[in-house]
Design a protein around this nucleic acid. Sequence first.
DNA 1: GATGAATGAGTATTCATTCAT
DNA 2: TATGAATGAATACTCATTCAT
Lengths: 219, 219, 219, 219
Amino acid sequence: MSAGAAEKPARKPDTRRVLIDAAARVFLERGFARATTKEIARAAGVAEGTIYRHFDDKYALFHEVFLAVAGDTAQELARFPERAGRGTVRENLERLLQLLIGMIEHTTSLTASIWADPEMARRFEVYIRERMPMGLQGGPVAVAAAYLRAEQECGRIRDDVDALEAAAVVVSLPFASGMQRVLHQHLPGPGDFPAPGAAALEILARGLEPGGGERPGDA
Amino acid sequence: MSAGAAEKPARKPDTRRVLIDAAARVFLERGFARATTKEIARAAGVAEGTIYRHFDDKYALFHEVFLAVAGDTAQELARFPERAGRGTVRENLERLLQLLIGMIEHTTSLTASIWADPEMARRFEVYIRERMPMGLQGGPVAVAAAYLRAEQECGRIRDDVDALEAAAVVVSLPFASGMQRVLHQHLPGPGDFPAPGAAALEILARGLEPGGGERPGDA
Amino acid sequence: MSAGAAEKPARKPDTRRVLIDAAARVFLERGFARATTKEIARAAGVAEGTIYRHFDDKYALFHEVFLAVAGDTAQELARFPERAGRGTVRENLERLLQLLIGMIEHTTSLTASIWADPEMARRFEVYIRERMPMGLQGGPVAVAAAYLRAEQECGRIRDDVDALEAAAVVVSLPFASGMQRVLHQHLPGPGDFPAPGAAALEILARGLEPGGGERPGDA
Amino acid sequence: MSAGAAEKPARKPDTRRVLIDAAARVFLERGFARATTKEIARAAGVAEGTIYRHFDDKYALFHEVFLAVAGDTAQELARFPERAGRGTVRENLERLLQLLIGMIEHTTSLTASIWADPEMARRFEVYIRERMPMGLQGGPVAVAAAYLRAEQECGRIRDDVDALEAAAVVVSLPFASGMQRVLHQHLPGPGDFPAPGAAALEILARGLEPGGGERPGDA
DNA sequence: GATGAATGAGTATTCATTCAT
DNA sequence: TATGAATGAATACTCATTCAT
């Protein structure tokens, strides 16, 4: 961030960062419960005890990993509502779907570890509330709802549907698809979700376009 | 020893069933990884060793719990495509959403344990492939796609969208919402999904209705 | 032993005998410590609980197996000293070696289980003392010593060596060889003992023959 | 930190060695199967988990105990063939018997645990093959055979007997006696072997001395 | 800061034995 | 006699965490 001080040009090992990266890899391929501190330490090339110089416990390490992984896409997502009124609605929806899929693909493996363990979930909730960027506190649905509301004000999508509920429809698609792509295929639950393509976009866009008040499907 | 049917209304304890029920509770509130055989045995009111008279190991017990929990709704879901052409499309979609939410609410806590642990996922995949009812092998998306294709043949929904992709849109909604409702709230990931209500249904139905070829959202 | 009573011509299943045979097989291939009552019951084709109708515990079953296995050769061995003065000494020694090897081959696997477990040894000692045929109480060495003493009185072997010690020399040979043949090869301990052949017999016979007082090996 | 050798006479605890010694004691008095890791840890004055910092598992610990116990005498035994031609044959044989008895007395309790358990035997075989000192690979019989062959070339023992077979005769004596002395007395099997004394040596030496071709025992 | 040996509570699983039927 | 479900103490091994160096 600052110029000068070129005496140690990116030289310190930055053990903390090394540990987070290593832990991210291990959590990814083993899951939180099966990831051992020994394996993480080995992956980071440090001694086991070193972990505890930088993090209070295994949970704290996990939280840092989560923030590191989710951080980048989260920033872009938080600014998404500013797009309302620019470009076409269809283009924006498409970009939103992409963005969400990206974020979900990165975090789902970690998130699953949280879901799978109520005890962990409790700790995580407390921890994250204080550190999650404000714009994302409501989660992707809130972000999407904010965008849709803004478009409703522009008159570019129907205003007779609840923006929050509509946002849920929009977000659920990449959410389901993203999870499926990351998580081990052929598992029960969602089944084989294709990534949202032209057809999905078409359905969403048609369903959200203004005008055409008659109820369909009542034939 | 004696003939007659209703003479033993006080059924034998059926330890196996007792164990499955107890395990379902424990897996639900602790997650697979944190659920101990000791706790499951205590919850079932049997000795720890008894578990192993009925199940090969903790994994096998989990699998049985999953089948028991998923079984009921799974049956109804498998028969869903028969509804095509009957009632209104909107009614059918509504019922489908309900059905999926119910199933997902029941199984998600268990499914999360699978997702969170690649090792577990591998075992589960093998195990389930042989015991999952055939009609559900492709998962809910396949079921929904079958239904939509049948409606396309009836001419009750547009036939210029891919049924599979459309099915993904339909299923992802209750999937995301159902997970959210079950999983510990305020967690990262989906954010606050409202359950699919009138607005969601409206969007889906409008997006799927036949006719109206012009592209929306390009204003 | 008695004639008549042909109504049930060897018909009762004789569960006890079946169990002993099955247990013999299992103890042989698993060793006492690793042999489970479940496996024995399965091998015998009976329920696990049935074992305890016939034997007090796993130890008692083992003891019965041992007696059943050792019984046959033991009888013949007990009568061996009667041979003194008949045939040639060399022939008798050869027969003795054969006899011992046979017995040892049958019992060594079982005996090893006793040796390996001091607790078991204690129980076994008590149990066996009361049921071992009297002629064998001193073990094979005593039997061999009795034979050699008798031959000394016949003047057919030197009488300036202690019969007991000489017996030890004679018995140790098939003992070592027999163990080796049965026990898993290439293990530490004895190394590869060839079965006692012509050369071994030659050494023993020469070493025991009367006359030739000069000390060898002092060259 | 500092130069000089004898500055730290108070050696570090050397947990590994402490564990091996403690385990040797426990294996000796309980046998491998009954020796628990808990008891070994208590005997060593360390926590149970510490065992696994030093050894892969209970088997590996056993192997190390075996090597530690067998190691010393094994070294001397491996060099024994060099004695050929020096001293008298009788003296050498006597020393060989002593050496073997010593080694066997030390290792037999452990060896019994191997014999008693085929599964254990398999593991041990693999493990030991890579770590047993080369000179002892063939076991004591091979060593003794090497010595006898060398003496045959010196003309100090008869060359019309097979050295390997003669070696088996020589080794079997201390083998049987050594086992007997260690193993719990009055057990079936060898019976009461006296330790090889003057008489045994006499028989062996006379049986091996050169010259005297007539067949004895044919009277 | 870094190390890595030591810790010890915790875990799934086994297995000889019992006992109601 | 036979059964086999139930038992529960026992076991080897794991792993997050601590702390002296």
